[in-house]
Amino acid sequence: MNPVGTPATPGTDSTTVQDYVKVIYAATEWHDKPVTMSALAARLQVANSSVTEMVRKLVGLGLARHEPYSPVELTTDGLRLALAMVRRHRLLETYLVRELGYGWDEVHDEAELLEHTVSDMLIERMSMRLGHPVRDPHGDPIPAADGTVDLPPAHLIGVLDDGHRGKVARISDANPDLLRYLDAEQLQLDTEVEVVGRRPFGGALTVRIGPEPGREIDLGEESAAAVWVSTVGRHPGCTFQQ
């Protein structure tokens, strides 16, 4: 196994490079779908031409593979850098929530700024102080120092069958307003949920939350696309190796 400390390879200290490899990794972490150039542009909110230029640079640095009209893939070095940045980001989010009293809807942008400036030593001290957590405040797995990623077996709540029961394993942090809404509805990590069914004519997804008898809430399309439910125990996940 290899540690995921920030590599010293020339060019990898660029914040833009670090952001790109992190986004490429995150785009496939919960969705088993290839990352296209247009998907990268949408996630980063930049022009397609900017993505094309940056991906070309990643390929030149040996961090990514890409052929015309094909998805973008990380190389071994690219994955190592991505895991280092993901570890930094998620540990920072966890530290801000647990130690500094931030809300889970407030930490993403703060972590985005800090992850590029803190040292590897500080990140490891934070991890130690937190008891080496395995997930961040939104349920995303925190890569271990040796590159191990423990991804819980979970599915989007919107694709589960009626009557399916489980616990919330992850809630996307893409929209702070949505996080605040779900928090107000008491739909949080580890909340017990049961899929009741869809409202007629493509309506909202009705979910029962909490232990029996629970209460029902309706999740719109955006809400249902942000909630992941796990129904079994955690598994060893995957290990990054060179």
Rank of each mutant, 00 (worst) to 15 (best):
P10A: 09
S38C: 01
A47P: 10
G78T: 09
V107L: 04
R65L: 12
E99I: 14
L83H: 02
R180P: 07
L178Q: 08
N2Q: 13
R180Y: 04
L58Y: 06
T9W: 04
S70Y: 09
G237P: 15
L74P: 15
G78P: 08
L81I: 01
R135M: 00
G139C: 08
I142K: 12
V55E: 07
V168I: 15
R170M: 13
T191N: 11
I123S: 00
V46D: 03
A27L: 15
V149P: 07
P7I: 06
L83R: 00
E192P: 14
H89F: 09
L61G: 05
M126T: 09
G202N: 07
L61Q: 04
P71K: 12
D150P: 05
L151E: 03
R90P: 12
A145P: 10
G60E: 06
T94P: 07
T206I: 14
W228A: 03
L81N: 01
G60Q: 03
L113I: 09
R199I: 03
M1N: 12
L151V: 14
A111Y: 00
A39G: 08
P10I: 09
E222S: 09
A224K: 03
A224C: 08
N48P: 13
P7Y: 08
H155M: 04
Q241E: 05
S119P: 00
R135I: 02
G202I: 08
T148L: 00
R125A: 07
G163R: 09
S49N: 06
D218K: 01
H155P: 02
R180E: 04
M54G: 01
E192W: 11
S127W: 02
R80E: 05
L114W: 02
L63K: 14
V46I: 14
V46W: 05
D190P: 01
R208F: 06
K22M: 14
D19S: 15
H66E: 00
V4C: 03
R170D: 05
E216K: 10
A226V: 15
L122S: 09
S230Y: 04
D161T: 13
P141R: 00
A184P: 01
H66Y: 13
I123H: 01
Y69K: 00
Y25N: 11
L100D: 02
V86Q: 03
I209V: 15
A145F: 08
R88Y: 03
E112K: 13
H164I: 08
R65G: 04
V118C: 12
E216M: 11
P68L: 00
P10W: 06
A47V: 08
V86G: 01
L187N: 11
V118Q: 05
F201N: 02
K22P: 04
H132P: 07
L156I: 14
T75G: 08
L58S: 08
A26S: 12
Q188N: 08
E93P: 11
I171G: 06
T36R: 12
S14H: 13
K167T: 11
D136F: 09
L160C: 14
E106L: 06
S49C: 03
L100E: 03
S14K: 15
L219S: 11
L81S: 00
P34N: 06
G210H: 12
K167L: 04
T117G: 11
L178P: 03
